[in-house]
Computed example of a mutant assay.
Amino acid sequence: ASPARLREDANTEEDHARGYYRDRVVVELAQNAADAAARAGVPGRLLLRLGRTDDGRLVLVAANTGAPLDEQGVASLASMRASSKRPDGGTAPDRGVVGRFGVGFAAVRAVADEVSVVSTSGGVRFSLRDATELLAEAAADVPALADEVRRRDGSLPALRLPFPADGSPPAGYDTAVVLELRDEVAADEVRGLLRAVGDPLLLALPALVEVVVEDLTSDDPPRRVADVGRRWTVASAQGELPLALLADRPVEERAARDWRVTWALPRTGEHPAARVVHAPTPTDEPST
C-alpha cells in the first residue's frame, strides 16, 4: 500500500535486471546450485534445459542437487540484499558458499516475468501478472499508489510477493528454477549464455562437478561439462582475512572474511577461456 516502497522495490529490481545482472542469469543460477551443493556437502550437479511447454511457452529449467528450498530460502528470494546463506543465528555466510548478499536471483528478471522454484520440500513462484493484479486491488483504495503504478507503465516488481507453486524437480535433482521466458529475444539471449557454458564455470565454482546443457529448441546436441581436472592444472589457497582489514566495511561484509584463490592453466595448448580475473565469475579485469 506504500507508493514509496513500491517505487523503491521496483527501481531496485529493475536496476539489477537491466543493469549489473542483465547478462548473468545462467551464471547466477549456477552459483545458487553450487551453494546448495556446498551447504548439503554433496557433489554439485546442474542441468540447464531450454525447451517449450505443451502450450508452446519457452522455458529455461535450471535443476540442481543439494540443499532443498526452505523457509529462509523463500524469504531470501523475496528480499533484496538479505541472503539466507549464513549459519542459523549467525552473521557470517556459510563456509564454501559463493553468494552472500541476496541480490543475484534478481538476474532472472532480465529474461522472465513468471518464475517458479520447485524443490523436494515444496515450491514457490513469483509472477508479474499476479503481482500486478494485487497492486491494482490495493491501488483502488490508495490514489497515490494508483498514480505510481501508472507512472511505471508496467515496470513493476515481481520478486516481492511469493505465491505457492506446484511441481517437482526433474528426477535426480533436488531443486529446479523454472523461468518462463518473456519472448524470443530473451530466448536468444539465453541460448547465447548456454553456449558459453564451459570449463571456466566449473573452475570458478568448485562445488559444481557437472553441468549438462540441453537446448531442446534447436539442433544443438546436449553437452556435458565435467572432469575439468583432466584438462586444467589447478592450484588453490584459502584462509581468513584479519578483522581489522574489514573494519570500515558494511556489517555483513565484515562477517565475510573467508578468502579463496585459484589459479588454473590448461594442461595442453591454448584454451578459449577469456584471460581475465574471475571473482568467482568473469570480470573485465585482464590477467596475463
Rank of each mutant, 00 (worst) to 15 (best):
R152T: 14
R152F: 10
D153N: 14
D153M: 08
P157Q: 03
P157Y: 01
P157M: 12
A158F: 13
L159A: 11
L159G: 06
R160Y: 08
L161I: 15
L161C: 07
P162I: 12
F163E: 14
F163M: 15
F163Y: 15
F163S: 13
P164Q: 12
P164G: 13
A165G: 07
D166I: 07
G167M: 09
G167R: 02
G167P: 04
S168G: 15
S168Q: 15
P169S: 04
P169E: 02
P169D: 00
P170G: 02
P170M: 01
P170I: 03
P170S: 01
A171M: 00
A171P: 02
G172N: 01
G172F: 01
G172M: 00
Y173E: 00
Y173T: 00
Y173F: 15
D174M: 04
D174F: 05
D174W: 03
T175E: 10
A176S: 07
L179H: 04
L179N: 06
E180I: 04
E180K: 04
L181N: 11
L181H: 13
R182G: 14
D183S: 08
E184M: 02
V185E: 10
A186I: 14
A187S: 10
A187H: 09
D188F: 11
E189L: 15
E189R: 15
E189N: 15
V190A: 11
R191L: 11
G192Y: 12
G192F: 13
G192V: 10
G192T: 09
L193Q: 15
L193K: 13
L194P: 10
L194T: 03
L194D: 09
L194E: 10
L194G: 05
R195M: 09
R195V: 12
R195T: 15
A196C: 03
V197R: 12
V197M: 14
G198A: 13
G198P: 15
G198C: 09
G198S: 14
D199Y: 11
D199P: 13
D199L: 13
D199M: 09
P200M: 04
L201E: 14
L202P: 00
L202H: 02
L203I: 11
A204K: 01
A204T: 07
L205K: 00
L205M: 13
P206L: 06
P206R: 03
P206A: 14
A207P: 08
A207R: 02
L208P: 01
L208G: 02
V209P: 00
E210K: 07
E210G: 00
V211Q: 06
V212Q: 12
V213E: 04
E214F: 07
E214S: 01
D215S: 03
L216N: 08
L216Y: 02
L216P: 01
L216Q: 14
L216D: 14
